[in-house]
């Protein structure tokens, strides 16, 4: 293989130097810190993130709501939102592990929100959507040139909301309301309770709950992001950061110069890029097989392949 990590200009293990922010962040606080810096410097004038019900209650006009009854929106349901300040960023921080259609706000960001320089965070497939929107802007007028910073998150697969509910409430035997943090790492699905309890589930349990659409995805590390990041490869509390594009290089360079992050060379940390490469290969190999299977799925009938 060799292309499994995509093109990147540099790769480090990093963590935010903002201690306050780290308390709210998933791992090294990369996304939150980078957006906070970009907002402060005017590199972006707003960012699309996955917020939640509490955020939506406080900032209703900043969210893309669905047709749910607001009172019935469950804990850990992501709500795409636009944030303009560090406080709002922190209010929305943390990985939700279920689908947040962030790209749904991409056009509106340039319309009623009046953004000229959009930041967006998303999964590898969402980064693909963003780049397709730039190159083939069929229904995305005046959007492409406004995308100022796209941050991608490493992603093995995503879950529908109901899957997270069943994983937490059935398998981990915890109420979603009581969960402080969820995480996938070290081959396990981790659920941390507000009272300090920790439940780990083997990943094989999670497989049946995965979103089927993820099984044709050939990108683990958000190859098309400006900067991509994830916990894999770095020690606890740190994140692996891959700087990919000219924009990414420039923003990351400025953030480093401003002291936003402390870093360690990726070669020096454990488990390092070796693990990232291994997982990327696993995902790509598995999903290529899925695609092959789809080609001969029926009797003389194939399922559609979006790549050809």
């Amino acid at each position: 293989m060799g292309a499994e990590l995509g093109n990147y200009k540099s790769c480090v293990s990093a963590r935010s130097t903002d201690k306050e922010l780290l308390k709210h962040a998933q791992d090294g606080g990369i996304v939150t810190s980078l957006f906070a810096f970009a907002l402060e410097e005017g590199i972006i004038d707003g960012a699309i993130v996955a917020a939640n019900k509490e955020f939506a209650a406080k900032y209703p006009s900043k969210c893309m709501m669905d047709n749910s009854n607001f009172d019935m929106i469950e804990p850990w349901r992501p709500i795409p939102a636009i944030v303009n300040t560090k406080a709002e960023l922190i209010a929305a921080a943390g990985t939700k592990y279920n689908i947040s259609p962030n790209v749904s706000l991409l056009k509106e960001a340039t319309r009623s929100f009046g953004l000229d320089k959009i930041g967006i965070v998303g999964t590898p497939c969402q980064m693909q959507a963003v780049r397709k929107a730039q190159l083939y802007p069929i229904g995305m007028r005046d959007v492409g040139a406004s995308i100022a910073l796209a941050v991608g998150i490493f992603c093995m697969e995503n879950f529908p909301y109901q899957s997270i509910l069943q994983l937490v409430e059935d398998h981990a035997a915890m109420k979603l309301e009581s969960v402080k943090k969820m995480e996938i790492g070290k081959g396990k699905f981790w659920v941390y309770g507000k009272r300090g309890q920790v439940v780990q589930l083997p990943l094989k349990i999670t497989h049946k709950y995965e979103q089927p659409g993820c099984h044709v995805c050939l990108d683990y590390v958000a190859n098309l992001a400006d900067v991509s990041t994830g916990s894999v490869g770095s020690p606890d509390g740190w994140s692996t950061v891959m700087v990919r594009s000219k924009i990414g290089d420039s923003v990351w360079g400025k953030a480093m110069a401003a002291g936003c992050f402390e870093t360690q060379p990726i070669e020096k940390v454990k488990p390092g890029l070796e693990l990232v490469t291994k997982l990327a290969n696993e995902k790509i190999t598995k999903n290529k097989k899925t695609l092959e299977g789809r080609a001969t799925f029926g009797v003389g009938k194939a399922l559609r392949n979006p790549y050809i």
Partner: peptide
């Protein structure tokens, strides 16, 4: 076809607000 991954692109692209994302789809 089992290909949707809930990115929300369609909702943004729709010129008549006919598409909303419900539970990510």
């Amino acid at each position: 076809q089992g290909l949707c991954m809930g990115c929300g692109t369609c909702a943004a692209a729709c010129p008549v607000n006919a598409i909303t994302m419900e539970y990510g789809k």
